[in-house]
C-alpha cells in the first residue's frame, strides 16, 4: 500500500536532522542547507503517493536532496562565491608530510587505526571526522564531499566544478592526506 501523506510527514520528521546535517557538510552554509532541505520537503510531498515503505522513501528523499544540493552549488558558483581552486596553495601539505626524498616525515607516519567495523561505529570518530572536514579549505572539502559523501564520479565532479580530472585527483589526494593526518591527531592520540 502506498504511504499516506501523514506517514510521509512522520518519516520526514524522523530523517530531517540527518538531511540537514548531510546538506551542511556539503554546502558548508547553514542557510543554504536549510533551503535545500526545505525544497526537498516540498518536492517530496508532491509525490509521496508513489512510495511504499520507509527505506524506499528515505533513499528517494536523499536522492532529491542531492539534486537540490547540486543546484545550490551551481548557484554559489554562478554568483562567484567560490574561491578559485589553486592547487599551488596547498603544495605545502605534501611538504609537511613527506621528506624531500619521498619518505614520510617521522611525525607524519600513519598509525594503525584498528578494525574498520569498530571505527565506523564509533561516535567519537565521526565527531572528529566532521571537525576535520570543517577545518579543510572550502574548495578542497567541496571536491572531497562531492566524491565521498555524494558519490559523484571524478568525471561528473569535473563537469560541475569546471576543473580537469587530473586536477580533481590531485585535490582528492591532498584532501585524503589532510583528513587522515587530522584524524590521526584528533582521534587516535
Amino acid at each position: 500500500m502506498p504511504i499516506s501523506s501523514q506517514q510521509a510527514a512522520e518519516h520526514f520528521r524522523h530523517i530531517r536532522p540527518r538531511l540537514l546535517a548531510f546538506a551542511r557538510l556539503q554546502l558548508r552554509e547553514s542557510a543554504a542547507a536549510e533551503d535545500a532541505v526545505q525544497e526537498t520537503l516540498l518536492t517530496a510531498f508532491e509525490k509521496t503517493s508513489s512510495f511504499e515503505g520507509r527505506s524506499e522513501f528515505e533513499t528517494w528523499v536523499f536522492g532529491i536532496l542531492k539534486f537540490k544540493i547540486l543546484d545550490h552549488l551551481r548557484q554559489q558558483k554562478k554568483q562567484g562565491r567560490w574561491q578559485p581552486l589553486n592547487d599551488s596553495i596547498d603544495e605545502d601539505t605534501l611538504d609537511r608530510l613527506f621528506k624531500s626524498n619521498g619518505h614520510w616525515q617521522p611525525s607524519a607516519r600513519p598509525h594503525d587505526w584498528g578494525e574498520p567495523e569498530h571505527i565506523l561505529e564509533n561516535q567519537r570518530f565521526w565527531q572528529v571526522f566532521d571537525a576535520c572536514l570543517i577545518a579543510l579549505p572550502d574548495s578542497i572539502a567541496r571536491v572531497f564531499t562531492l566524491r565521498e559523501l555524494m558519490g559523484l564520479s571524478t568525471q561528473d565532479i569535473c563537469k560541475e566544478l569546471d576543473i580537469t580530472e587530473t586536477n580533481c585527483w590531485v585535490i582528492l589526494h591532498r584532501a585524503r592526506l589532510r583528513l587522515r593526518a587530522c584524524l590521526d591527531n584528533g582521534w587516535i592520540q
Partner: peptide
Amino acid sequence: HPAAPKSS
C-alpha cells in the same frame, strides 16, 4: 556517516 542515508 551518521548523516548519510541508511541502506535500503
